[in-house]
Amino acid sequence: MKPLILIVDDENSIRSFLQVSIETQGYKCIDAANGANALMLAISHNPDILILDLGLPDMDGLEVIKKLRKISQMPIIIISARGHDREKVEALDAGADDYLTKPFSVTELLARIRVILRHKSNDNVSSEAETFIYKIKDLIIDTDKHRIWNYNEEIRLTPYEYKVLVLLAKNQGKVLTHRYIIENIWGGIVTEDTQALRVCMGNLRRKLSEDPSQPKYIITEIGVGYRLTDE
């Protein structure tokens, strides 16, 4: 079955161009011109990837992300003319998995689609081949059920937050460099821009610690990377 990709942009020309470019690579596309239709299609069709413009006529793209994250963990790639770091961080904080600033290369977009689909495929293989339950202090990571608990409370993570946490858990106590994490989670696509990793770690700390300024689980090795505590 062909992977299904939902394209959301209020400009017909952009939607048509992206649909043709993506479908020539063997994917299937559906599209929406506003946030309301995007949410409806996302819920009814459960696409493999959502490509989302932030500047929509009926609601801001950030609102679409937040509404979707309440019910789904489908990967979201942002395509937007908003290129400031603050706006990128807001989108990633809201639950987006990747961010491309307009104008962008279709080749790069296709590469990021492939990375996401490859990770989804690897996740399915891994879940069938081996499952683990990690317990670190009050944190429990169940890779069989894809669920996280902290102090007996279930924690909701985005797909990339979950993958980073599991990668750290598999290497508990070891320092993982920024480059190593990026190459293993994002396929090296953002090697030159560690912003996505910084946001991801910030969100993980906020979700896992009462005081993110004093992280309980994820330790920063300044200038090198991160490690999961082995205390």
Rank of each mutant, 00 (worst) to 15 (best):
N203S: 15
Y217W: 05
L110P: 10
D123V: 01
A129N: 08
V89A: 08
D31F: 14
V125M: 05
N171D: 09
Y151H: 15
T191N: 13
V115F: 06
S21I: 08
I78R: 05
E153V: 10
R156L: 12
R86S: 11
Y226Q: 00
N150G: 01
Y151M: 08
L18H: 11
G95D: 07
S21D: 07
A96H: 08
K67Q: 14
L54C: 09
R147H: 13
T191G: 00
D211F: 12
I113S: 02
N122R: 15
K163E: 10
N124S: 06
L228M: 09
L117A: 08
T101R: 09
V175Q: 12
E87C: 04
D9A: 05
T229I: 15
A91E: 03
L109I: 03
I116G: 01
T101N: 05
A81I: 07
Y162W: 15
Q172K: 15
N12T: 11
C200K: 07
I51A: 06
T220K: 15
S80P: 06
I51K: 10
I136L: 11
Y134E: 03
D85N: 10
P75Q: 07
K120I: 00
A33S: 14
R114G: 05
V190A: 03
Q214L: 01
G35H: 08
L41R: 14
H146I: 03
K2V: 04
G83D: 14
R114C: 01
N122V: 03
Q172N: 05
H146D: 01
S72F: 01
E108N: 13
N34V: 04
L168S: 04
L62R: 13
L50E: 02
G223T: 06
D144I: 00
V125G: 00
L168Q: 05
I136F: 12
Q195T: 14
L52Q: 09
A196M: 09
L176P: 11
M201D: 00
Y99N: 03
Y27G: 11
L157G: 10
K2C: 02
H146V: 01
V89D: 03
D31P: 05
L100A: 09
Q214E: 00
N184A: 12
A32G: 07
L157S: 12
T177C: 01
L4P: 10
L18Y: 10
T191A: 06
E183Q: 13
Y180K: 15
I76T: 05
V164H: 08
S126F: 07
L157F: 13
G61W: 06
K102C: 06
R206V: 07
G188D: 03
W186Y: 15
L18G: 08
H146E: 06
L168C: 04
E183T: 09
V89K: 14
N203C: 13
L157K: 13
Y99F: 14
C200R: 11
V190N: 14
M74E: 00
W149G: 02
G95S: 11
G188H: 08
K137A: 14
D10G: 11
I222M: 04
N124D: 02
D9Y: 07
V190G: 00
R205T: 03
A38I: 02
M74P: 00
T107K: 15
R147F: 06
L168E: 01
T131L: 00
L165S: 09
V125E: 04
L165P: 09
E221M: 02
L165Y: 09
E183K: 14
P212A: 07
S44T: 13
L100S: 07
M201K: 10
S44A: 12
N12Q: 14
G83Y: 13
H119N: 12
R227K: 15
